[in-house]
Design a protein around this nucleic acid. Structure first.
Length: 261
DNA sequence: ATGGCCGGCGCAGCCGGA
C-alpha cells in the first residue's frame, strides 16, 4: 500500500492539483498539511468522489491538517498530546485495518520556528519534545506506524542545495536537527534516506527561481516504526508536481509498504 | 550580483510561511 504526505499550501487553492495528483498517484492513504481551512470549508466532495474517506483537523486562515484514506478509518484522533493549551491544528492520526493487522498513520505539520531566539523557536522545540514523547508511546504498541508530514527540519547538509544559506534558520539549527535525530534514535527509520544516499528535495521556495535552480531542501519526511520499516518496499517523491500550474512549494513524498488492504 | 512569491482574509495591505 502507498502512503503519501503533501504540504499543499492551501487546499482551496490546490484542489484541482490535488485531484489530478490523487488520480495519477493513487495512494491508499494521504496526509495533508497547511490546508488553511476550517473543517466546514474543506472541499470533501471531489475527494470523496475518488473513493477516499476524509478526516480533517482545520483552523481558520493557516495551519490545518487532514488525512485521506481509501480504507475506512477504525479510529481518528486530532491534536498532538502533551499540551492542552496548544490551539494550533498540526497533528492528526488514524488507524486502518489491513490483512492481518492495522496500520497507524500520524500526519504532522511541525512548526517552522523562525525566527530563532523568539517564542516561535521555543514552540518548535517544545512541539518536537511532545512529538518525541508520543512517538515513544506509539512504539510500545508494536504496530506498523508511519509518522509523515512537513517536519520543517533539514536533517543533514546533503538535504540542502546550499546548506550554508540555512545556518541561521530554524529548519537547520543544531537543536532542530538533534530533536529529529532523537526520533530516529528511538528506532524510527527515515524512509527516504533508507532507500537512497542521493540528494533529494521536497521544497523549493516560490522566490528567486529556486525550483529552476534546484535550490531546494528536504524537509518533508516519513518516519517508520520497526514494524513498518520491515515492510518498506519503496520510497520517493513526485517532483514533477512542482512544475504544474499554480504549484504548492512542497511536493508529495510517498512510501510503499507490503501490506494488502 | 541582486532580487525576484504565495495564500488567506477580505477588499488594503498585512500575517505567516521557509
Amino acid at each position: 500500500m502507498k502512503i503519501a504526505t503533501w504540504n499543499i499550501n492551501g487546499v482551496k487553492a490546490r484542489i484541482e492539483s490535488l485531484v489530478a495528483w490523487l488520480k495519477e498517484a493513487a495512494p491508499e492513504i494521504v496526509v495533508l498539511q497547511e490546508i488553511k481551512s476550517v473543517d466546514e470549508g474543506f472541499p470533501r466532495e471531489p475527494i470523496e468522489s475518488l473513493g477516499y474517506n476524509v478526516a480533517t483537523h482545520g483552523q481558520k486562515g493557516f495551519n490545518g491538517v487532514a488525512i485521506l484514506s481509501r480504507l475506512p478509518f477504525d479510529e481518528v484522533t486530532r491534536g498532538l498530546p502533551g499540551d492542552p493549551d496548544d490551539v494550533q491544528s498540526r497533528y492528526i492520526e488514524a488507524v486502518v485495518s489491513v490483512k492481518g493487522g492495522v496500520v497507524r498513520v500520524g500526519g504532522l505539520y511541525l512548526p517552522n520556528g523562525n525566527p530563532i531566539g523568539t517564542e516561535k523557536f521555543t514552540y518548535k522545540l517544545a512541539w518536537m519534545r511532545r512529538l518525541e514523547a508520543h512517538a515513544l508511546a506509539l512504539l510500545a504498541l508494536e504496530e506498523p506506524v508511519v509518522l509523515a508530514g512537513d517536519y520543517n527540519v533539514i536533517p543533514e547538509p546533503i538535504d540542502a542545495k546550499r546548506p550554508q544559506n540555512w545556518l541561521g534558520d530554524a529548519l537547520y539549527q543544531p537543536e532542530s536537527r538533534e530533536a529529529y535525530r532523537r526520533l530516529t534514535g528511538l528506532g524510527y527509520t527515515d524512509a527516504l534516506r533508507s532507500v537512497t544516499d542521493e540528494q533529494v528535495f521536497t521544497f523549493w521556495d516560490y522566490q528567486a527561481g529556486a525550483f529552476q535552480k534546484n535550490d531546494g531542501i528536504r524537509i518533508d519526511h516519513a518516519l517508520l516504526s520497526p514494524q513498518a520499516a520491515d515492510r518498506l518496499t519503496a520510497a520517493g517523491t513526485d517532483r514533477h508536481v512542482r512544475a504544474w500550474e499554480k504549484p504548492s512549494d512542497h511536493i508529495p513524498v510517498w512510501i510503499e509498504l507490503g501490506f494488502e488492504p
